[in-house]
Design a protein around this nucleic acid. Structure first.
Length: 265
DNA sequence: TTCCAGGCGTATC
DNA sequence: GATACGCATGGA
């Protein structure tokens, strides 16, 4: 970890890291562009992060917090150069890595990731952000399962989340009651973890996979949304290469970003 | 107006 | 187990 202090902020020199590609690529929905960088949270710990000339500026944090919260969150202990070398053996992934080489998989909070991807179903990214924004504003923070569990479905109407409101409530209640233990699920074998997550109403294969990948750093989890289905049909009719499978989730993030931008242009 | 968005529950076979 | 359809909302 190559970092130093400057005017009370932490300056990080980091390869394979781009703020737009990491914070605005559809894996997290709570980061907001500021003039120079992004402002957001890990749970309720805030951060402003700015791209400097040859380093990233972590504002208003401490060395302790930087090393234990942000270095983990931004997956800085993982060598993405090495990952991209493995990915680049594959033609399509090689292009995806060249297209956006600064993507990193964020190690998000378990509940926030689960809740966010419950909201994501049959929805578009701007509207997902809007719902989560109203949620955080309404509760003053990203609400805990306990805070939501005490409510009625109609109390969530202000989110304008549509049919997803009852799913959020079911997830919150099951977690608050202890029936679902995300900490425990994060350590289960993948098939068992998937099965348990899918007992929540409104959590199917895709949302469960997202909860595992984005909230529990299960990098072999591979969410199949409409975009990745297009990628699979177009480039991976015979499945993804064996060397990629242990990191399929991270590869998926590169592919997701690539196919979406590719289609836009 | 119609279609679509990081899907899932339900009904039906 | 596979397939068809409705679902809330809002932008294109």
């Amino acid at each position: 970890m190559d970092y130093f202090f400057k005017n009370g902020d932490i300056c990080l020199k980091q390869e394979d890291f781009d703020l737009d590609e990491t914070l605005d690529c559809g894996q997290a929905f709570r980061w907001k562009k500021t003039g120079l960088g992004y402002y957001g949270f890990y749970i309720n710990t805030p951060l402003e992060i700015i791209r400097g000339h040859d380093y990233f500026l972590f504002k208003n944090t401490t060395e302790e917090e930087f090393l234990h919260v942000w270095a983990e969150y931004f997956d800085l202990y993982t060598d993405y150069g090495e990952l991209k070398r493995i990915f680049s053996e594959d033609e399509t992934l090689s292009k995806a890595c060249k297209f956006a080489g600064g993507i990193r998989l964020l190690k998000q909070d378990k509940w926030e990731a689960l809740c966010s991807f419950i909201i994501s179903q049959n929805n578009n990214i701007p509207r997902i952000k809007g719902i989560i924004d109203r949620m955080c504003n309404g509760f003053g923070e990203f609400p805990t399962p306990l805070a939501i569990s005490r409510l009625e479905v109609s109390d969530l109407d202000f989110l304008r989340a549509g049919f997803r409101g009852k799913y959020i409530l079911d997830g919150a209640k099951r977690i608050a009651s202890g029936e679902i233990d995300l900490e425990l699920i994060s350590k289960m074998e993948l098939p068992e973890a998937r099965k348990k997550l899918q007992t929540i109403v409104g959590v199917g294969p895709k949302v469960a996979e997202c909860a595992l990948l984005y909230g529990m750093y299960r990098v072999e989890a591979f969410p199949m949304d409409v975009w990745i289905k297009r990628v699979m049909e177009k480039y991976y009719k015979n499945g993804i290469p064996n060397d990629i499978i242990p990191y399929a989730g991270i590869a998926q993030q590169f592919l997701f970003h690539y196919i979406r931008k590719f289609v836009e242009n």
